[in-house]
Nucleic acid binder design. Structure first.
Length: 209
DNA sequence: GTTATGATTTACT
DNA sequence: GTAAATCATAACG
């Protein structure tokens, strides 16, 4: 993974994000490369775990039933922008807004496989161990390692300013593990929806069962 | 104005 | 396995 490749590759076009099936998009994002250029540091990580959130029908989503607030407002924008928010007062969670304007769908990026500029990620996380899988395992940890903060709320993912995603590999369905989402038990039966996607056998996401 | 709580992580017991 | 950390947001008065 070279710096030239990261800088020259075209980001995924906004049409990719503006399709209507957020569950489909969440699966297609597996294997793609998340690139950040923040505080002068170019970093890249392959996406290995995602979750889909559907604003209109999903109780687990902040924008459930099109509940529009200052925080969720960005989810109603057209796909291709970042939705970053602070959870538990500590962790920044990075989401990708999808679908057309007015449809509050988003994909939460839960884990990645570090590909470029690992020293910067370790420094941000305060981890020195070269083989610590915790570096980018978990949504809060990934965002911190990549340098993503709430300052990136609403930034475009298609103009290569701070955060963007490039095409890399496609993961075939038999290598995608589907499971219920975690941390959303308050959502009742919607918490059981198999909208959490992982790459089978990848060391950088929590172990498959 | 106040108050409860979370799309989590980490360090303990 | 259990609990604490810690603050922006949202709901309420």
């Amino acid at each position: 993974m070279s710096e030239d490749f990261l800088r020259l590759a075209a980001p995924l076009p906004c049409q990719f994000y503006q399709r209507s099936d957020v569950v489909q998009i969440a699966q297609e994002l597996l294997g793609k490369v998340l690139v950040t250029y923040i505080e002068g540091q170019l970093c890249a990580a392959k996406i290995v775990e995602t979750e889909a959130y559907c604003g209109a029908t999903d109780k687990a989503c902040h924008a459930h039933m099109n509940r529009r607030t200052k925080r969720t407002e960005i989810m109603f924008a057209a796909g291709g922008v970042a939705y970053v928010y602070l959870c538990y007062g500590i962790h920044s969670l990075f989401n990708i807004v999808t679908n057309q304007e007015g449809n509050a769908d988003a994909v939460l990026i839960r884990a990645g496989e570090p590909l470029y500029n690992l020293p910067a990620m370790r420094q941000r996380r305060g981890i020195s161990n070269l083989d610590d899988f915790r570096l980018t395992a978990g949504p809060g940890a990934l965002a911190k390692a990549m340098g993503i903060t709430t300052a990136h709320y609403g930034v475009s993912l298609t103009d290569k300013t701070a955060i963007w995603i490039i095409d890399f590999e496609s993961v075939s369905p038999e290598y995608i593990i589907k499971s219920p989402r975690v941390g959303v038990s308050y959502a009742g039966e919607d918490a059981l929806l198999p909208w959490r996607f992982r790459i089978k056998g990848n060391k950088w996401c929590s172990p498959a069962k």
